[in-house]
Amino acid sequence: MNGDENTKAGKGEDDNFAAAEHVLGLADAETRAAFARRLETDRALAEEVAGWETRLSPLDGGYEPVTPPPALKAAIEERLFGAAPEETTGLARLWNSLAIWRGLAAATSAAALVAVYLAVFPATTPAPTTVQLVASLEAEGAATQLLALFDPGTGQLRVTPLSVQPVEDRDFEVWFIEADSAPISVGVISQHEHNTVDISEALQRAIHEGTTIAISLEPLGGSPTGQPTGPVVAAGQANLI
């Protein structure tokens, strides 16, 4: 074993112990904070932490459940969603969430900029009308940008990647999301090209102003579970122009 390897092994051991120390929570506030910052960018270190979390997790069985006071849930939901109607959460909140999603999308390092254009049947209007909707969203360091257009005349959703860093051996999958429901798969699209997806009549009725359109990174051929399994690389909300 040469000197380099020794040094490497030494650092590995130190990091492994620092990870165990962090998981056990032994260190003081400053050390913990510094370690947490390192964790944000150091994948090897994050692996060490995950390893120790796995090793020690059987101890979690020792924590006795204690029912929290009922008011706590309402307090949390109010802080997260506010007391206002759901759709007022708005674009800023969506982008906040995208900034976090970006973390997992490290493979694409996708900061997201998405614009979604839609023309829809308003769900409550019996006679189909062509009302255009738009949402334009931005995140700092924007790297990913797609455009979605729903044409009620043809029943097709057109998705055009404007700025995308492709990820090999993965597909993009498009989802419609209503605030209170599980995402509905719309279809798998190419990361590179202009896409046209036929939208079933049922799905056409599901899309309206305020619907969130999200794109997740999935194994080739799409999510094996029917629900998103990969990071969301871009999302936007349908709005009236």
Partner: peptide, 26 residues
Amino acid sequence: IKRVSLRDRRAFSALYDRTSAKLFGV
């Protein structure tokens, strides 16, 4: 948890109902 990552509030509510006692214990 997967559904919560897609901003599904109903899933969040259900997740809270099922896990809050354990986490409050922690």
